[in-house]
Amino acid sequence: MNNQPGDKLLEIQDVSTAFNIDGKYYDAVSDVSLDLYKNETLAIVGESGCGKSTLATSIMGLHDPNETKVSGKINFEGTDLLSLTDDEMNKYRGQKIGMIFQDPLSALNPLKRVEDQIQEVMVYHTKMDEKQRHARVMELLNQVGIEKPERIAHEFPHELSGGMRQRIIIAIAIACKPDLLIADEPTTALDVTIQAQILDVLKDIQNENHEAIILITHDLGVVAETADRVAVMYAGQIVELGSALKVFHNPKHPYTRSLLRSMPQRNSENDDLYVINGTVPSLQKMPTHGDRFAPRIPWVPASAHEENPVMHELEPGHFVRCTCYKVFDFPAEKEGAKA
């Protein structure tokens, strides 16, 4: 909202990602379609197993082709990333698309100095010499808010705090000024105060470089603080998509509403929290027909669901899957505590 959305950067069309489990392929992401515009932050939110990280790694092409099948189209600046070979894809990874990972300690090579790890990405994508790369490293460390870049650059990852490490990861991801930054749970392993700083750093970088950010997180608070648009995922599908304002202030899909309702709220400390019926189905048990969320709202009559739920545009830019949102309401309060 703070940013003027630019041109379309990324077009995800009917992307499905299936994993090989004991010889059979199961969809972790099924038929996801999504557009991303320059200079915007799109949050993909959902609980573990909903496919949000799988979608991100599919865009990056990080899946092992022997174990994973990715189908559909991922158009990035006019090129279908899924049609590229691994070598061709390497020209995009790190240069046009940067990625930030959840655990900043394990994401850094423990045996290499910070400077070498940041320089590495420039070695493969630029013609800079050692001296220029060093200068760029200093510039980057400044940009991610590290005060003594010369000293930090010389350290090993284990000598830094969690927040510092995540800044290094960000520096690596933005080293070549990518057009797209994918941040997969970038603050989950961090304390709240550090989380706030890291989110600020990401915002500041966006204001400078105008890249698009895909922010993957399970934390609704983080989404509400940073995202321009939100995609809510459940069981491999997007169930609701819209501006942050719409999704948080006028959520439509039963899953979105349930999630928001199960958060501990201010001034309701004496009430039980809302609990969603049942559990997320495992990959092998994913229903192939009908509304995947239907088993978790059993009081909604079957007739309210679509046979093959599709996205409906309620208002410009606000989409909801299935028609069941029209009749959905929460059961009476006393039901809330039941497992």
């Binding site: 709240v192 600020d200 934390d219 603080e225 948080f248």
Partner: peptide, 24 residues
Amino acid sequence: LLAAIPQIDVENRDKHKAERLKIE
């Protein structure tokens, strides 16, 4: 610590951020 907690209040997030930066 309180200021750093992300709030589900999209409309006022700029205000919230300003407040947080002030306290920081």
